[in-house]
């Protein structure tokens, strides 16, 4: 039995690991999520695609408990997350890599890497993580924010792989990175998928999204308006281009 199948067996019934239903979200007075609904199955890589300001980041922040006000339902492995503070959501096994990367300037690279606590067994070891991102190995004692943008992105991903959380929320991990680094991150996601990780990926880089994902959700004006399986992508290119305005 593969890792992915093992996770799937644990999370029956329904074979759905994360179920977001009619999610509404606000920043203060401004209502930004207007009924987001989508599902993620164990071991899947799904993307949230959409124009700037569509509500992709806000959706991930809502799942993580970081949006100040939320309504609706976010069910993870059968447990409702809506009333929980972020730390308990993290302890439930969800790890978050924010769009702005969130590398700490008062921490060294090594301290940044070792910061997130282990929430459950089965995470990657420190050496394993450094083997995946060898660039970090030589920079361990540097100040976190002295790394290049690409290295900071690797660090932001690397540090959550140690935690044992197998459900990852990645917000535009390839944003602004050189093609070789994008490829490296692509290989890493494929490796994580093979190990049974489940990934929700926010992506603007459409080709990258197509190369790693199983399914794509299209977000527009705070709602999910369509779902396209990766296999049907070529057939739906025109539609998708219209959605994304590319």
């Amino acid at each position: 039995m593969s890792d992915a199948a093992a996770t799937a067996a644990e999370t029956a019934p329904g074979d759905i690991q994360l179920s977001v239903r009619d999610l509404n979200g606000w920043y203060g007075e401004s209502h930004v999520l207007h009924g987001v609904s989508f599902d993620v199955r164990p071991g899947e890589v799904v993307t949230l695609l959409g124009r700037n300001g569509a509500g992709k980041t806000s959706t991930l922040r809502a799942i993580m408990g970081l949006l100040p006000r939320r309504e609706g339902s976010i069910s993870f492995e059968g447990r409702e997350l809506l009333g929980l503070p972020p730390r308990q959501i993290a302890r439930a096994g969800i790890a978050f890599c924010p769009e702005e990367r969130g590398i700490f300037s008062t921490l060294s690279v090594d301290e940044n890497l070792m910061l997130p606590p282990i929430v459950r067994p089965g995470g990657l070891g420190r050496e394993e993580v450094l083997d995946i991102f060898p660039n970090l190995k030589e920079r361990l004692s540097s100040q976190g924010t002295k790394l290049s943008g690409g290295e900071q992105q690797m660090l932001a991903i690397a540090r959550i792989l140690r935690t044992g959380a197998k459900f990852l929320l990645l917000d535009e991990p390839t944003e602004g990175l050189a093609p070789v680094i994008v490829q490296q991150i692509g290989r890493t996601l494929a490796m994580l998928k093979a190990r049974g990780f489940t990934i929700v990926l926010v992506e603007q880089n459409f080709r990258f999204a197509a190369s790693v994902a199983d399914r794509h959700y299209v977000v527009e004006q705070g709602r999910v308006i369509d779902m396209i399986p990766n296999a049907d992508l070529t057939a739906n290119t025109a539609k998708l281009h219209a959605y994304l305005g590319v």
């Binding site: 970081l66 730390r87 969130g102 700490f104 300037s105 910061l115 997130p116 606590p117």
Partner: peptide, 24 residues
Amino acid sequence: TQLGAYLRAATENPSLVGAFGINV
């Protein structure tokens, strides 16, 4: 120390530290 790293990180960005599972 590791505890000090939590403290420095939480000084910089408490909500992200909370999202890692630390009781800020």
